[in-house]
Each structure stands twice: as C-alpha cells, then as structure tokens.
C-alpha cells in the first residue's frame, strides 16, 4: 500500500492527473495496443476453433511479434494510467478481474499454442482456445466497465 501511494504521488501519477494531453494520449495508446493484442488473439483462436483451416498455425508466428509489441504498449500505458489512482484501482473489483483475466488469458494462449504444436486431440485444443478467448474478452469488457464501476 505504501508503495502504491508512493507511485501515485510520484511524477508519473502527477503527469497523468495534471498534464492536459497526457491522459488522452496514454488512453489512446492503450486502445491501439488493445486492438493489436486482441486482434491477434481473436484471429488465432478463430483459426484453432476451425475457421479458415487452410491457414497454417506456425505461419502466424510473426503476428505474435506484433501482438507482443501491442502488449508492451499496453503494459506501459496501463502502468501510467494506473498511477492516476493506484490505491483506488487495486480495490476495484473490475480492475482485479481484468488483471486476473489477462494473466489467465495470456497463460492459456501459451497452452493453446503448446497443444497445437504437440498435436493434442482437437477437442483439447478447442477447449483451451475457447476458454482463452473468453478470458481475453472478459479482460476487455471489465477494462471498459472500470470507468462505470468505480
């Protein structure tokens, strides 16, 4: 908690609360990063679930580099936004759910790719894929609703 207050009262917190254009710029970076990460997650999971079967899954690899780029944009912009009122966010249910969903969704993405690579039965691949996609969707929905459930 001390750390959160220190972070919130430090220069990053001050910047995001007081700079006129700081907040919108960080906010739109967060939206662009989200579209990038989620775009790749959605496309890949659609493929694993059976859409456009002619697409080779290993050929998606470079899109994952793009997705990681989006993820880092979001990690950084997210940390800056978090500084705005970190000691409040940590107690907000929608924020906790969002972070949990993203961590679980990210881990499951690894499992999905692992299952594809290891040639696990289709139902295992698809089950992992659908739970993974749902986690990421929960991450987006709770992120959007954070503004309303404060």
């Amino acid at each position: 908690m001390d750390f959160l207050l220190w972070y919130e009262e430090g220069p990053v917190g001050l910047f995001i609360r007081e700079s006129l254009w700081g907040y919108p710029i960080v906010l739109f970076s967060h939206a662009v990063g989200m579209a990038t990460v989620m775009g790749v997650v959605v496309a890949l999971n659609m493929r694993v679930l059976g859409f456009a079967k002619e697409l080779s899954i290993p050929a998606f690899d470079n899109l994952f580099i793009v997705a990681w780029l989006g993820f880092f944009i979001n990690l950084i912009s997210g940390l800056i936004l978090f500084a705005g009122s970190s000691s409040t966010y940590v107690f907000q249910g929608s924020f906790q759910l969002k972070i949990g969903a993203i961590l679980l969704g990210g881990t499951l993405m690894k499992f999905v790719l692992g299952a594809v690579r290891a040639n696990k039965p289709a139902y295992i691949q698809k089950l992992l894929s659908i739970v993974c996609l749902l986690c990421w969707i929960v991450g987006v929905v709770t992120g959007r609703l954070m503004a309303y459930l404060a």
């Binding site: 989200m34 579209a35 989620m38 775009g39 997650v41 959605v42 470079n62």
Partner: peptide, 21 residues
C-alpha cells in the same frame, strides 16, 4: 478488436509480415 484482428491477418499477409499464411 474483431475488425482489427481480421485486418491484421489480411493486411499482414499482403504486407509480407506473415507471408506463409
């Protein structure tokens, strides 16, 4: 995100980022 994901696949392939798709 659905729209952007679809665009990433089509435009990514055309740009050559994922040219083996």
């Amino acid at each position: 995100i659905w729209l952007f994901g679809a665009l990433l696949v089509v435009d990514g392939r055309v740009l050559g980022i994922v040219r083996f798709l």
